[in-house]
């Protein structure tokens, strides 16, 4: 009985203490909170350090997406790069879980700390590639998939990627 009573008072006391601590809530939107760069908000498509589209339309983000809100179609550019002919995210379905970013092998798709994307009309939540593509590299500044990959593109022939040897001379017979 006494024990129970003590517990009640302790609770009251703890709550009372909170009256004198600093409030965590802020006067949004007058005051913007700090959000870490890794915060999971609106999704963007980034470019590589050379200013080329990073996305190679591999479809991994789309398949990783638990609500299936990413659809795209691959195409091949003149220079040999794979790229998305269209890239669509239906943000009215997106749960901002970040699985797509996790799955992306090229750092193309990234979540940003921007969460302010309310719309009166749901169809405005459907973003196409032109709405998603940004000019910068996002959080990851240095990675360029094509410098690692073996696919030859204009300006990077076979053997010119990281840790690649010059193409083999098939006709050479030396051991």
């Amino acid at each position: 009985m006494l024990k129970a009573l003590a517990s009640q008072f302790r609770t009251l006391w703890t709550i009372l203490q909170h009256s004198f601590t600093k409030a965590e809530t802020v006067q949004y939107p007058e005051r913007q909170p700090y959000l870490a760069p890794r915060y999971r908000g609106r999704i963007v498509l980034t470019k590589d350090p050379d200013g080329e589209e990073r996305c190679v339309a591999c479809n991994l983000c789309a398949v990783a997406c638990p609500v299936d809100c990413i659809a795209l179609q691959q195409g091949v550019k003149e220079d040999g790069r794979w790229y998305p002919e269209f890239f669509r995210i239906n943000f009215s379905r997106c749960i901002l879980c970040g699985m797509c970013e996790e799955a992306c092998p090229t750092y193309a798709i990234q979540l940003t700390p921007d969460f302010e994307m309310c719309e009166y009309d749901r169809k405005n939540m459907v973003y196409e590639k032109e709405h998603l593509q940004i000019e910068g590299t996002g959080k990851y500044h240095d990675y360029n998939f094509y410098r690692v990959s073996g696919l030859a593109i204009t300006g990077k022939d076979k053997g010119q990627a990281q840790s690649e040897a010059e193409p083999v001379d098939v006709k050479g017979l030396l051991p």
Partner: peptide, 15 residues
Amino acid sequence: HRNSGRTAIRANISV
């Protein structure tokens, strides 16, 4: 079972 994009394929026509 991995088919993707179900909620986005037609989203440009209707959500």
